[in-house]
């Protein structure tokens, strides 16, 4: 038997009515069907405590805390327009239109909860920061699940998510003096590139910066070769 995320979301909303407005159910259309619940950061501790302590739910194990970076951008959504009956046979397939919507501009934390007692899971919860700059805080769930402590430190280290209420929020993988958030999409690698005989893709771009003349010539000659083989 598997858990039905939508029903759990409804149950939380019913039992904790003051939190209902902050809950959003996300359906995952992919075959994995890992549906999730988006929780307001302020309600996170309360929701987690409820999920852990309520009999019938008993999500006693927080397996995973991961960070996701959603940079500001546009997301193209496909909207299917069903064909009207009067159209000819050529338009048999439903028309698909792409609509661009502004999206992102925040950091997300994804929690995977399991119930050891009921041998079920995972229940996927998500929480978002207000933006990727100053308002990068999410409530820490370490008071509820001790296993979150190191994983939140990792998300803090690599994504720069500030977990309010964390007992010991320090970098865990990189050194303390490090200032960047290396798993963010806009992170720029340190320029410690070394020449290699067959640079390609990103490596080639960086190689060009280091060896502007010779590398540019090499690219030219490669293009010439490609043309000659054509």
């Amino acid at each position: 038997m598997s858990i039905i995320v939508e029903e759990i979301a409804k149950q939380i909303g019913k039992e904790l009515p003051h939190l209902e407005a902050g809950l959003t159910y996300f359906e995952n259309p992919s075959p994995s069907e890992q549906h999730s619940i988006l929780v307001e950061s302020d309600n996170l501790v309360e929701v987690m405590t409820y999920l852990r302590d309520t009999s019938g739910l008993e999500f006693d194990f927080l397996s995973n805390v991961s960070g996701v970076d959603w940079p500001e951008g546009e997301v193209a959504e496909k909207i299917t327009i069903e064909k009207s009956e009067g159209e000819s046979e050529e338009g048999a397939e439903d028309k698909e239109q792409e609509e661009k919507k502004p999206a992102g501009g925040f950091l997300e934390v994804v929690y995977h909860l399991y119930s050891m007692a009921r041998k079920e899971g995972p229940l996927v919860l998500r929480a978002r920061t207000k933006d990727r700059g100053v308002n990068n805080a999410v409530a820490s769930v370490t008071p509820v699940y001790r296993s979150a402590e190191f994983q939140e430190r990792e998300a803090f280290d690599l994504f720069g998510i500030d977990f309010t209420g964390h007992p010991d929020l320090r970098r865990i993988l990189m050194w303390d003096e490090f200032e960047d958030s290396p798993m963010r999409k806009d992170y720029v690698n340190p320029d410690d590139y070394e020449y290699e005989p067959t640079p390609h893709a990103d490596t080639l771009k960086r190689a060009e910066a280091h060896y502007p003349q010779s590398e540019a010539e090499q690219v030219e000659s490669k293009d010439e070769q490609a043309e000659s083989t054509d």
Binding site: D176, F178, E179, D180, D192, E194, Y195, A207, S214, Q218
Partner: peptide, 22 residues
């Protein structure tokens, strides 16, 4: 430990980036 990388990123008395002339 620097803010973005080790400082210095190498010891020039021991190692230098190899010249490239493809």
């Amino acid at each position: 430990y620097g803010a973005h990388d080790l400082e210095p990123p190498m010891n020039p008395n021991v190692w230098n980036a190899p010249d490239s002339n493809p």
